[in-house]
Nucleic acid binder design. Structure first.
Length: 483
RNA sequence: GGGCCAUUAGCUCAGUUGGUUAGAGCAUCCGCCUUUUAAGCGGAGUGUCGAAGGUUCGAGUCCUUCAUGGCCCA
């Protein structure tokens, strides 16, 4: 701690925490990108001290601002002995405002010859090592501010994340989609299968659940006459933490009336190819050593057909849970003994079909028993008009022609309630209000869900979801009871 | 939930078959230095070796439990 230096400064009448503003006239990147315009000009720059190189009666100080770094030169004969004496208390990490003229050193470095400087804040703690940065992953996630300060590539990841979401909003606005906000706190959490987080509302004295999907409320809005709606929002699933899972993550869901899953496929192709082009300047993206081509049309793979090609077994020939578990054993795939037929088959597809889907590929025609909210294919009623987009072997998006038959929907929900009674606590309770909405008539609609975190992982070549979430969920240090 | 690995100075890391007072670089502190930039030169201090217990004459090192994280599997 540098309390001593702070006290010395205060003893000299300088409180580094007192300044309330500092009017900046240029950024470091301005000076670097158009030096000719700034040469000899007076500028005001502010930033964090990242390096100090003293030279007796002069010194170099590197200031970091949001766009990069700028070197500053302080000479005792220019700033004056009183100001220069204050550099005695300067530390790495301090925030400084300087005013001076722009020049180049004999080595060609763009530099500000400081005429005056001002402490704008004092750092009482040491910065991590300037050469190695901060590599301890635990500290990087727990103290992300330090990670961002000393590891510039981390800034780039979150810049891409921000621009990705900005691009999506603009893309959808151009297609006349309306952005909406639906509730996070709900008396029941539905729209997919996952364990929800539960909390308690004191005034109503009731349990409320954090949403696990956006689907059922957005479809209510389609019933209400908003024909193109979307939400980019946080959803919460009470599951384990891994490189691919964070308990809270960000989903895009959109619904478009009077189109089907083919229309959504085209939209996904346009959105992703446009996004990659926008961020990369090309349709190719490198992820973990593989080059991915985002040029439409994307490949298409029929799920049931591909399973048959891979295993010689047809989905519909597996008629019972016992058959399914035997099928899994034959393939040498370990599955939870409590899984029912559909869950086992889903797991098998995940093992034998999905890993091959490296280039952007629509895996489509999911069986109805794993697609409770998707419309049946009229030609194959046991299959649905559904697709998942896979990239690099991972699910990136999920879409279907939305089931709008309230009677079929009720039957499927009732079948789910059987599983719920059998102890599957990932199955949501029956949402009677949603059924009531469907009973008033929902137009034919195409819907899409995209995992934004996984998308950003792809776009930033990040192997872990924690790398694309600023503050990932971590177990607190020490006992949780101490907090 | 299971397996493997990691945890040593503010940061990044060494530390031999158990053996004297636990080391290096950066950062920090003191001195010098007016175009350096991994600045340089001279000097100094770094510490609950993740925590607790155990084995031993002796533990950073071996054993047990726990904590946190990583990787793989479920």
């Amino acid at each position: 701690m540098r309390i001593g230096k702070l006290q010395e400064l205060r003893a000299r009448g300088i409180n580094p925490y007192q300044p309330t503003r500092f009017d900046v006239t240029a950024s470091s990147s301005d000076l670097h990108s158009s030096y000719e315009r700034w040469e000899g000009q007076s500028v005001r720059i502010a930033g964090r001290v990242m390096a100090i190189r003293t030279h007796g009666r002069a010194m170099f100080v590197d200031l970091a601002d949001e766009g990069g770094k700028i070197q500053c030169h302080l000479r005792e004969d220019i700033v004056g002995p009183e100001q220069f004496a204050l550099t005695e208390y300067l530390d790495l990490g301090d925030i400084l405002g300087v005013e001076g003229t722009v020049f180049k050193t004999r080595r060609g470095e763009v530099t500000v010859e400081v005429h005056e400087f001002q402490y704008l804040s004092k750092s009482l703690m040491d910065l991590p090592d300037k050469r190695h940065g901060l590599t301890n992953v635990d500290l990087r996630y727990r103290q992300r501010y330090l990670d961002l300060l000393v590891n510039p590539e981390v800034r780039r990841v979150f810049d891409v994340r921000s621009r990705t979401i900005g691009f999506i909003r603009q893309f959808l606005a151009e297609r006349r989609f309306m952005e909406v906000e639906t509730p996070v706190l709900l008396p029941l959490a539905g729209g997919t299968e996952a364990r929800p987080f539960a909390t308690h509302h004191n005034a109503l004295d009731m349990t409320l659940y954090l949403r696990i999907a956006l689907e059922l409320h957005l479809k209510r809005l389609i019933v209400g006459g908003f024909d193109r709606v979307y939400e980019i929002g946080r959803v919460f699933r009470n599951e384990g933490i891994s490189t691919k899972h964070n308990p809270e993550f960000t989903m895009l869901e959109l619904y478009q009336a009077y189109t089907d899953y083919h229309g959504i496929m085209r939209l996904v192709e346009d959105l992703l190819s446009g996004l990659v082009q926008y961020l990369q300047g090309s349709a190719d993206l490198e992820y973990q050593g593989q080059v991915l081509h985002f040029t439409p049309p994307f490949d298409q793979v029929d799920m049931v057909e591909r399973l048959f090609e891979k295993t010689g077994v047809r989905w519909e020939d597996i008629r019972s849970g016992e058959d399914a578990h035997q099928f899994a054993r034959d393939l040498g795939i370990a599955v939870d003994a409590r899984f029912d037929r559909a869950q086992v088959l889903d797991k098998i597809v995940g093992q034998v079909v999905e890993p091959d889907l490296v280039q952007p590929t629509f895996l489509w025609h999911h069986p109805v028993d794993i697609s409770p909210l998707a419309k049946r294919d009229p030609a194959y009623p046991q299959l649905t008009e559904r697709f998942e987009l896979f990239v690099a072997g991972r699910e990136l998006a999920n879409a279907f022609s939305e089931l709008n038959d309230p009677l079929d929907q009720r039957e499927r929900f009732l079948a789910q309630q059987e599983q719920r009674r059998e102890g599957n606590d990932e199955v949501p309770p029956l949402d009677e209000d949603f059924l009531n909405a469907l009973e008033h008539g929902m137009p034919p609609t195409g819907g899409l869900g995209v995992g934004i975190d996984r998308l950003v992982m792809l776009l930033t070549n990040s192997p872990s979801i924690k790398d694309v979430i600023l503050f990932p969920t971590m177990r607190p240090l020490g006992s949780a009871d101490d907090l």
